[in-house]
Amino acid sequence: MSNLIPVHPLEKRWIYVVLGVIALFLGAIFYTALVHQVHPPGAIETIDSATLHLGGEFAEDKLGVRTDADGHLRATLVAARYGFYPREIRVPEGLPITFRIASADVLHGMHVPMTNLDTMVVPGYVSTVTTTFPKPGEYPMLCNEYCGMGHDHMWSKVIVVSRESWKAAAPQTGR
């Protein structure tokens, strides 16, 4: 560019500074994404939201927290006006858990404040997001996308229990 137009030396210095800052930010993003695998949701998976209740992964009796055969924890939820179902789940602190969630009606958003658990729930698509809760406690799971006149009332509870009490409890299946 500087061959094409006269660029003031001060401008040149400023552009280098700006490019350096942008490179720093992008470097941090690529580092966490590629080395630590920190990603937003992004596995494209379609589902017929109109038939969730008729059977399959999101049928009523399959919802809740389970331990898969390989020992990995999985929470299967349906987002529908006006709640996340089951309305209350118990999960352990410090263990990775994968949420799979589908909408039975309109757009919803799932956010558990003070954690990084956040995903849009789009009818026709399954949202998958994995997180680890660092601290025990009772957390609200809020709908953060306008979904109708009852949107204010759409929330559920996540109870994060200590590792010890999680182990002491009977292994959970379903609800």
């Binding site: 993003i29 994404a33 990603h39 937003p40 992004g42 494209i44 995903t119 849009m120 789009v122």
Partner: peptide, 13 residues
């Protein structure tokens, strides 16, 4: 759309 399920990670990045 970062938090959306209908687009992949590569394009988001």
């Amino acid at each position: 759309l970062y938090m959306d399920p209908q687009q992949g990670k590569g394009f988001k990045l």
